Computed example of a mutant assay.
Amino acid sequence: MPSTSYARKTCIRCINETSHGTHPTSRSRKAPALWFAAAAVVYLVFGLLLTFTVNVPMKETLAAIAVPHDIETAGSIRRDYSERWQFLNQVRE
């Protein structure tokens, strides 16, 4: 069985290597983190791009339409708007 001082030196060496990025496991953890960060940036950029270029203008167009008094006209407006809105909202998510 190794002596206590050997085990302690080994433990301290692992801590130092991990904190300085020289330990093998510290390098192997960086790659997935970078991929995750890159995916988050892509998701954020394209989500915002789609929101500002498509979803917001669609909502502004819908807000500009006068509220109809009859149910048939309201249903027609909803059908025309809803399908495209739902598709683009799913793409954005």
Rank of each mutant, 00 (worst) to 15 (best):
S28C: 13
M1F: 08
A33W: 14
E93M: 06
V45W: 03
S3F: 05
L50G: 06
R29Q: 07
V91D: 10
V67E: 11
A74G: 05
A74I: 01
W85P: 00
A33N: 15
W85F: 05
E17R: 09
S82D: 11
L50T: 04
L49I: 06
T51N: 10
G75C: 09
D70L: 04
R29M: 08
N89A: 04
N89P: 01
T25L: 14
G47Q: 00
R29E: 12
K59M: 14
A37C: 12
T4H: 07
V54D: 00
K59T: 11
M1S: 10
I15F: 05
A63F: 10
T61D: 11
D70C: 06
C11F: 12
Y81R: 02
T53I: 02
I71Q: 08
F46A: 08
L44G: 15
W35V: 12
V56M: 03
I77S: 01
N16H: 04
T4L: 10
R84F: 09
M58P: 00
L50R: 05
K59P: 00
C14Y: 07
A39E: 01
S26P: 02
N89C: 03
C14E: 07
Y43V: 11
E83T: 13
T18L: 13
M58F: 06
T73I: 03
L88P: 00
S76P: 02
L49C: 01
M1V: 10
Y6C: 00
A38Y: 08
L62G: 03
M58Q: 07
P2R: 14
R29H: 09
Y81V: 02
P24T: 07
H23D: 03
V67T: 13
R8D: 08
S82W: 08
R29Y: 13
G75D: 10
A64H: 02
L44H: 06
A33E: 13
P57F: 01
C14Q: 05
L62K: 11
L34H: 07
I65F: 06
P32R: 07
L50C: 01
S28N: 09
T18E: 08
L62M: 12
T61M: 11
F87L: 12
M58I: 03
P57S: 03
E60A: 14
T22L: 07
V67Q: 09
V67K: 13
